[in-house]
Computed example of a mutant assay.
Amino acid sequence: MKRIFLSFAMLAILATTYSCRETTQEKTEDAVEAIGEDIEDAAEETGEAIKEGADELNDEIQGNDDM
């Protein structure tokens, strides 16, 4: 009876550990995807800012500025 109880307890511990590991892995994957999306958004914003700056510089050089 003692062996059956200990075996059941060990199986319960293993099942709990395995299910938590799976959840942690899923959360990690979601976090990595979110970080990737944030980096992509930041790169796009940076590219747009660089393009705007280059356009302003070009206008300034050619004398087409608004002032």
Rank of each mutant, 00 (worst) to 15 (best):
M67I: 13
T16H: 01
D30E: 15
E56G: 02
E52H: 08
D41Y: 12
M67S: 07
L6T: 05
R21K: 04
D66H: 10
I4S: 12
A54C: 04
N58G: 05
R3M: 02
M10N: 02
I61N: 03
A34W: 10
T17S: 05
A42W: 08
T16Y: 00
D41P: 03
N64W: 02
I13N: 00
R21Y: 09
A31N: 10
I50S: 03
E52D: 10
E44A: 14
V32E: 15
A49C: 04
A12N: 02
L11Q: 04
N58R: 13
L57S: 06
K27G: 04
N58L: 08
F8M: 06
K51S: 07
A49Q: 14
M10E: 02
T46Q: 12
T28W: 09
I50Y: 03
G63F: 09
E33Q: 14
F5A: 13
E26M: 11
L11Y: 02
D55L: 04
D41S: 13
A49M: 07
D66P: 04
D59F: 02
V32H: 11
A43S: 15
I61W: 03
G53T: 08
L14Y: 01
E37Y: 12
L11T: 01
T46I: 00
L57C: 03
I4V: 09
A42C: 05
N58K: 14
T16V: 00
E22Q: 12
F5L: 10
A9C: 12
E37D: 14
M1W: 06
R21L: 00
D38H: 08
T17C: 02
T23H: 07
G36K: 12
K2V: 07
L6V: 05
L6W: 14
L14K: 00
E29N: 14
M1L: 02
F5I: 04
E56H: 10
G36C: 05
K2S: 06
Q62F: 08
Q62R: 09
E60L: 15
T46K: 14
E48P: 03
A49G: 06
D66A: 09
V32K: 15
A9K: 13
I13F: 00
G36V: 05
G36M: 09
F5G: 01
R21S: 07
E60M: 13
A12I: 02
K2Q: 14
A43W: 11
E22W: 04
M1S: 09
I13M: 00
G47C: 04
E37P: 07
T16E: 01
K2T: 09
E29W: 03
G63E: 11
K27F: 10
A34S: 11
D59A: 11
D65M: 07
K51D: 12
K27C: 03
E52G: 05
L6G: 01
E60G: 08
A34L: 08
I4C: 09
G47T: 07
G53Q: 11
A34V: 03
